[in-house]
């Protein structure tokens, strides 16, 4: 049931995704602040399908040359492509402290045992500025294969970016910067090079008192 209703292709399903900051309070406790978060969901057949967005509407927000979003989408499988609009929670006081930990954690599951590669490209005006590539091996748990990218450190570029964003006095200014900031995550089967998931992330700043929010869309080409 999750196909078409959550971030899942026929081969891989995203279970959870978060970018966070951990601030130690004392030697035994710390505060965890979630900038963005996609929690576990268990859609059923009675849930509606995700809304769709025409992938051509966002081509220029992501790399367009070789290996860009267009080429990836045309290669398919097209059921592996999603757009996530995040309303990021920046309601936190940031100080420069080397004890702070900025991290990203994500989890995936599959019915297949494989090795996955996750490429995460941060883009400014559609051009890649930094890329992180991670390889994960499967763990067999409760009848399926689970992949965990646990507490991957946020890169220096992203930490600086968050700090600069926080220094802007008004939310509309932050949103104006975020209009040209995007992230493209491509999860691939390391051995077959098949695209398992491709997720395009775009951002605004949350105005909610309830923290980070998001909408998920299927990317299509009608």
């Amino acid at each position: 049931p999750w196909q078409g209703r959550s971030i899942a292709s026929s081969k891989l399903r995203m279970l959870e995704f978060s970018a966070f900051l951990e601030q130690p309070q004392d030697p035994e406790t710390f505060n965890k602040h979630l900038f963005v978060h996609i929690g576990q969901s268990n859609p059923t057949y009675s849930d509606p399908y995700l809304e769709s967005v025409d992938v051509r509407q966002i081509y220029d927000k992501f790399p367009e040359k070789k290996g860009g979003l267009k080429e990836l989408f045309d290669k398919g499988p097209q059921n592996a492509f999603f757009l996530v609009k995040f309303w990021a929670d920046l309601s936190i006081n940031l100080q420069d402290d080397s004890n702070f930990f900025y991290g990203v954690s994500s989890q995936y599951e599959s019915s297949e045992n494989m090795v996955i590669t996750s490429s995460t490209k941060v883009c400014s005006f559609g051009k890649q500025v930094v890329e992180k590539v991670e390889t994960e091996y499967a763990r067999f748990e409760s009848g399926r294969y689970v992949f965990r990218i646990h507490r991957s450190p946020l890169c220096e570029y992203m930490i600086n970016f968050i700090h600069k964003l926080k220094h802007l006095p008004e939310k509309y200014m932050m949103n104006s910067v975020l209009e040209n900031f995007t992230i493209l995550q491509v999860v691939t089967n390391r051995d077959t090079l098949e695209t398992l998931l491709c997720i395009a992330y775009v951002f605004e700043v949350s105005t909610s008192e309830h923290g980070a929010q998001h909408h998920i869309y299927r990317l299509v080409k009608d």
Partner: peptide, 25 residues
């Protein structure tokens, strides 16, 4: 300057929900 001026997101064909922040807890 940049050779290509990007179309603002607001002027693109996107679902209405794209601009509606969920108010869920």
């Amino acid at each position: 300057g940049r050779a290509v001026e990007q179309v603002p997101m607001r002027k693109r064909q996107l679902p209405a929900s794209f601009w509606e922040e969920p108010k869920l807890t």
